[in-house]
Amino acid sequence: MGVTQTMLEAEQRVPLGAGVGEPAKRRRKHKGWVPYAMLSPLVILIAAFVAYPVGSVVYYSFQNYNIVEPFLNGFAGWSNYSTMLHHDPLFWSSLLFTGKWVVTEVVLQLIFGMILALIMNEAFRWRGFTRAAVFAPWAVSGVLTTTIWLLLYDPQAGIVNYLSNIGLAPRGFAILADTHTVFWGAVLAELWRGVPFFAIIILADLQSIPRELIEAANCDGANAWTRFRWVVLPHLRDAVILSTLLRCVWEFNNVDLLFTLTNGGPGTETTTLPLYVARQAIDNHNFGYGAALTMAGFAILFVFSMIYLKLSKFGASTGYRS
């Protein structure tokens, strides 16, 4: 149950399909306007605040649109796009950094999340408490993560200072101000709140593995590794594929942490594309150019998602999973 088949079979299995796979329960036949009336708030909100804005981003990307310099506003043709592609090194460097950031984060979160989920799936004392404790950073916002890690990283007052005392780091070393260490400093902070995401999803899926499968594997003489490789992993396949994709999208788009922790710096060292968009919107009020950058973001997300789903053969479950 859970994440796995939802995307493809949403029609039949709306998430939380605790009613495991049962066909839609005697859904009443067409009742005229009633369902539409009940859905209208949802549809109106999505149309007005998601669909229309997406459309207007396309429009703005062809405009000069700056709310602090309204006298220059007007049709711009392709100029925003040509500036972006030909005259803006920050666009390309931010793309490169976005890729590095997303891949590093998602791979590390997946590995540690998997290990954590396997551990939490075992029976031990205080498991309920431990689970609440290790999953807690999931509920913490990006800004709060920044707050916490600034306190840890501060060269004078932070925990880093204790590392200097025992000779592990140079004295007064500012992790976030050094181009060599800022990346891993930010990665560690984001890992802190990102690992629970995968751990939660994978743990939920682990708990849906039928016991008989594990017992059968044991009868056949499987050890811990073969059991994991040939029974557990195939079972987790779809959940991992889908949650990895959604996490990539999320890590791509979420700028809270970098916005507040490094502010894209030092210099423009840690500027992702969406962070660049947010900066254009919030600081420069350059909406036209920001919209062109947003279009680039949409295009990349779309192409990436298609390729990913194609390559991973999502839904082609192996083995026993019907």
Partner: peptide, 9 residues
Amino acid sequence: VPGVMLLIP
């Protein structure tokens, strides 16, 4: 289509 990309509109 997350919120960050729709900040401007």
